[in-house]
């Protein structure tokens, strides 16, 4: 029973529920953390692209918010997530006496972190939408909200989608650091399994494969969605006017 391969089989056989639960927790934290992080980033990115008026009370307020956002972004991008996890988890216990649920703490940390990265990505995504798009919408009489909802934001979302997917994949891997605050995610479970058997190589080899399957599956799913969103590469030249008017916009190739 000293061959690694046999140990790998044995560990999977006896511990698969733990790996599965760990993978579930990892995916859950990464997914919810990425979604909330993207929302934080969207909000922060939008606020940071609002043109600052030349004078008035709005100017001071906006400047103040922008400073807060800059501090937030720079601070969370400039410190390791593993350290942030310790500070937030033990800090909230020491300062307020909160015993945070580790999974909730994990989601909060991932979301805040992702938000800091996404804020810059969203800002870039907004800036990269040509001003002509905005002007064309204004020119047909759309107001600001209509312009944003029907023209600008759909393009921003499309622009930031690859970066958001990338962030999700990074989060799947980086949730491993949450084991320091006893979140029972995949890495934490693996440490337990390895400790029970004293088979460190085998246990971590297995989890290595699991992480890869998770990230690769997510990559494929995201690619599928991106392609779906872009629509077909070719358009169909419609041949028959009567058919268009009947509402058949597809499949009338000529």
């Amino acid at each position: 029973m000293d061959l690694s391969f046999e140990w790998i089989i044995k560990i999977i056989e006896t511990n698969w529920p733990m790996f599965l639960r760990g993978a579930g927790v990892t995916l859950l934290i990464a997914l919810i953390g990425t979604i909330f992080g993207a929302l934080i980033g969207l909000l922060a990115g939008i606020i940071r692209t609002i043109p600052i008026p030349e004078r008035g009370a709005k100017k001071g307020f906006l400047k103040f918010i922008n400073i807060i956002l800059s501090v937030y972004i720079e601070f969370f991008r400039g410190t390791p997530m593993i350290v942030q996890a310790m500070v937030i988890y033990y800090g909230s216990a020491a300062a307020f006496g909160w015993q945070m649920n580790p999974i909730i703490a994990g989601v909060v940390i991932v979301a805040i972190n992702t938000g800091a990265y996404m804020a810059e990505i969203v800002r870039g995504g907004i800036i990269s939408v040509d001003t002509g798009q905005y002007e064309a919408a204004q020119a047909i009489g759309m107001n600001h909200v209509q312009t944003m909802t029907h023209v600008v934001m759909p393009q921003v979302i499309r622009n930031i989608l690859p970066a958001t997917g990338n962030q999700f994949i990074i989060n799947i891997k980086d949730t491993a650091v949450l084991s320091v605050i006893s979140v029972t995610e995949l890495f934490f479970q693996t440490k337990t399994v390895a400790g029970n058997n004293f088979r460190y190589f085998e246990a971590f080899f297995i989890v290595c494969i699991i992480y890869f399957i998770l990230t690769y599956a997510v990559t494929l799913i995201l690619r599928y969605f991106e392609r779906k969103l872009d629509g077909p590469d070719n358009y169909i030249v419609v041949g028959n006017q009567a058919q268009i008017e009947a509402g058949e916009h597809k499949g009338i190739g000529q």
């Binding site: 064309a136 020119a139 047909i140």
Partner: peptide, 24 residues
């Protein structure tokens, strides 16, 4: 101004078609 603008059409040098919509 939005009510006024909708009574005026504008065609731009750079077309400015909405990239997130098809022709229709």
């Amino acid at each position: 101004i939005h009510a006024y603008r909708r009574r005026l059409g504008m065609v731009f040098q750079q077309f400015n078609l909405f990239n997130n919509h098809n022709v229709l």
